[in-house]
């Protein structure tokens, strides 16, 4: 089982909020800056790797029950976005790696993608 805590080491990431979620399991992941695509492809208990740092990322995560968001290429979201994440109980990590490299590292570590479309 891979947990959010394991991702910190794999990605050399730091935790911006949601410490209490670190032992939750990560089953699949999705990397995208396009929330429209995230909405079409994500499954349960997913994590999202993105370079987009606006509040819509959190709203999209809320709809999909995404419990962990990783901001790539050293991006740190504005304070109000982090506040929203805290309110929603979403764990937020930040890594210096690009989205491409972060996804590669996680895939290599055994986290599968969310390739099947959601829905009926």
């Amino acid at each position: 089982m891979i947990t959010i805590r394991d991702l910190i080491k794999i990605l050399d990431a730091k935790v911006l909020c949601g410490e209490e979620k670190l032992d939750e399991e990560v089953r699949s992941a999705c990397g995208s800056d396009l929330m429209s695509d995230v909405l079409a492809f994500v499954k349960d208990k997913s994590l999202l790797i993105t370079g987009l740092t606006n509040v819509h990322v959190m709203r999209t995560a809320e709809m999909l029950d995404i419990h962990c968001i990783i901001f790539a290429r050293g991006k740190i979201p504005p304070e109000d976005v982090l506040e929203e994440a805290k309110e929603l109980g979403i764990c937020v990590l930040a890594t210096e790696h690009t989205t491409y490299v972060a996804c590669g590292l996680l895939y290599g570590a055994g986290i599968p993608g969310t390739s099947k479309r959601t829905g009926a």
Binding site: D33, S36, A40, N54, V57
Partner: peptide
């Protein structure tokens, strides 16, 4: 710019609804 406009919304609604 906000991350929308992929032209996926209506097909996604259709897929998710019964």
């Amino acid at each position: 710019d906000l991350g929308f406009g992929a032209g996926m919304g209506l097909p996604n609604m259709k897929r998710n609804a019964d």
